[in-house]
Computed example of a mutant assay.
Amino acid sequence: MNILVTGGAGFIGSHLVRTLQAAGEQVTVLDNFSTGLFANLPAGTQVVEMDVNSRKLESVFATGHFDAVVHLAGQTTVHISMDNPSLDGEENIIGSIHILEQARRHGVKRVIFASTAASYGDVAEDRLPIVESEPLAPLSFYGLSKVAVEHYLRLYQQAFGLGYVVLRFANVYGERQGDGGEGGVISIFAKRLAEGKSLTIYGDGQQTRDFIYAGDIAAGIYAALRTPHVNHTYNLSTQSETSLNELVHILGKVAGVTLQPDYQEARPGDIYKSLLANGRARRSLDWEPRVGLQEGLRRTYEYFCCQHAAKA
Rank of each mutant, 00 (worst) to 15 (best):
M1P: 13
E134M: 13
E182Y: 12
E295A: 15
F141C: 07
G36T: 02
A312S: 15
P268L: 06
S274F: 03
G8V: 06
T238R: 08
Q158R: 15
V165M: 06
T300K: 04
Q239C: 15
Q158I: 10
V69Q: 12
H71L: 11
D216P: 06
E195H: 09
L136T: 07
V5R: 14
G8H: 02
V172Y: 02
G64R: 07
R110A: 04
N32H: 05
Y272C: 05
R192I: 08
N231R: 12
V29D: 08
Y164D: 06
I221C: 07
N171F: 11
G143M: 01
S187M: 11
S240Y: 08
N231H: 04
S284F: 13
A117Y: 03
L37Q: 15
Q26C: 11
I217L: 13
S274C: 14
G8P: 03
V172M: 10
P42T: 02
M1K: 11
G10H: 01
G161T: 04
A23W: 05
F160Y: 15
N92K: 09
E175R: 14
M50S: 11
L293M: 12
Q75M: 15
I221S: 04
W287R: 10
T233H: 02
P42Y: 01
L37K: 15
T6L: 09
R55E: 14
E25M: 09
K56D: 14
A219H: 13
P138Q: 01
L37Y: 06
F11C: 08
L244E: 13
I271W: 00
E288M: 04
N231P: 05
Q26W: 04
I99K: 07
A190R: 06
F61Y: 06
D51W: 01
A255G: 09
Q102I: 06
I186G: 07
E246F: 10
Q206N: 10
R290G: 05
R290F: 02
G279H: 07
Y234F: 08
L100C: 08
E241G: 05
I212W: 08
H308W: 11
W287N: 11
D51E: 04
R209N: 08
L30V: 01
R282M: 14
N92T: 10
H71W: 04
L276D: 00
D262R: 12
I80D: 12
I186Q: 05
R267F: 03
I112K: 04
I221F: 12
S59H: 10
L72W: 00
F33A: 08
F113L: 03
F169N: 05
A23D: 15
E265W: 03
S14E: 09
Q158F: 09
Q157R: 12
N2K: 15
V123G: 00
L144Y: 07
S86R: 11
K197I: 09
S240E: 14
A309I: 04
E25W: 05
A159E: 14
P135K: 06
I271V: 15
L236C: 03
S14M: 10
G107D: 01
N171H: 12
G215C: 13
Y303C: 08
A23Y: 10
S145I: 00
R280A: 14
F211T: 03
G143A: 01
F113C: 03
Y120F: 13
L247K: 03
E182C: 15
M82D: 13
I186C: 11
Q206I: 04
H71G: 12
R209S: 09
S237V: 09
V48T: 01
T258S: 11
N278Q: 12
G74I: 09
G256Y: 00
S14T: 07
D67Q: 14
K273Y: 10
E58P: 04
D204C: 06
V5N: 12
A170F: 04
